[in-house]
């Protein structure tokens, strides 16, 4: 029996290019319905991606906010200024600490006088009741648990009466970011699955409408690999194009949100510099979408093709 022609690499490449062109042509033939399917998939993908971009931005911004966020250590009255400075020098060597400042009782009193408005009343006191204070600014990215442990350690020192942080605020922020990240993951999973199912169903309909053709191909000896190739190409193409649509969707959504986010940031006295989807991430999205298209098509082909046999 003749065994057919062994395939050279360039021949293989040509055969695949042929199928790819064919798939593209078919996409054009089914123009409107293909377009609607791709738009639907693109919208589904743009939602978690937009949310992801927003969480990334919020995480970046939160590092910035933490910079203005400090820990206050109230020193014992027994500690003099020299000891206080020594303690500060020691604390600054801690990897969590970005910078620190020592405030003598005199300085804290002056600050308190400025902020509290008790100026006159304070003059009546014979002794300065305020302790010396060390203010520390933790490194950005330090999470609440690390901070709590650090504070507990300082609290245990005899030189320190009280160690405080506005960590409730930090905890809330990191919980919110955690929530956002989880939401992105779950939505990404659900909508990714949606995309795969949409492709699978579209390909199933394609297979159904080309049933006769598949039967003829099987009759003249086409192996499953040959028959499924155009469907896999179509699925991948659907995914790829929906990825491009998703990138556009993300850009448009962020564009629409920018004025509102600016206004929001301004109300907190901050400037917001919204970062869009980076080129690399955009390409990753397109690649991932293409992969999902392939998976959907493969699943559909695997389930539907083997049932079509000549009779």
């Amino acid at each position: 029996m003749n065994t057919g022609q062994t395939l050279s690499f360039s021949g293989w490449l040509q055969a695949h290019a042929h199928v790819a062109r064919d798939s593209l042509a078919r996409l054009r033939v089914n123009g409107l319905s293909s377009l609607l399917t791709i738009l639907m998939m693109g919208c589904a993908l743009s939602l978690p991606t937009t949310l992801w971009v927003l969480t990334q931005n919020a995480t970046l911004a939160s590092h910035d906010w933490q910079r203005q966020f400090s820990l206050t250590l109230y020193l014992s009255q027994r500690i003099n200024e020299r000891q206080g400075q020594q303690l500060l020098a020691e604390l600054k060597r801690d990897p969590l600490v970005e910078r620190g400042e020592y405030l003598s009782p005199k300085a804290t009193l002056a600050e308190f006088r400025d902020y509290s408005g008790f100026g006159r009343a304070l003059d009546l006191l014979e002794d300065n009741p305020l302790p010396a204070v060390i203010v520390l600014w933790p490194k950005p990215g330090t999470d609440a648990a690390q901070l709590d442990a650090f504070l507990a350690k300082q609290h245990a020192r005899t030189e320190i009466d009280l160690a405080q942080a506005d960590s409730d605020w930090l905890e809330r922020l990191s919980a919110l970011l955690e929530f956002g990240t989880r939401l992105v993951q779950i939505m990404g999973l659900m909508l990714g699955l949606t995309v795969i199912l949409v492709v699978a169903n579209t390909i199933r309909l394609n297979i159904e409408s080309r049933r006769e053709e598949i039967v003829v191909m099987k009759l003249i000896g086409a192996p499953d690999g040959f028959i499924q190739r155009p469907f896999l190409y179509s699925g991948t193409l659907y995914g790829l194009l929906s990825g491009v649509i998703a990138c556009l969707g993300v850009a448009l959504t962020l564009n629409a949100l920018t004025p509102h986010l600016d206004a929001l940031a301004a109300s907190y006295g901050r400037a917001m510099d919204l970062q869009g989807l980076a080129l690399g991430d955009g390409l990753k999205l397109v690649g991932l979408a293409a992969l999902m298209g392939w998976v959907g098509a493969w699943q559909s082909v695997w389930r539907n093709l083997r049932h079509i046999e000549p009779e």
């Binding site: 395939l7 040509q14 042929h18 053709e213 191909m217 040959f226």
Partner: peptide, 26 residues
Amino acid sequence: VQLLHDRSVFDNVALPLLIQGFSPRD
């Protein structure tokens, strides 16, 4: 006859060769 009606006569006859892995050019 079981021809594929969305393809030309040439493509119909070429199909078994494509299946056997002949490059479209050859």
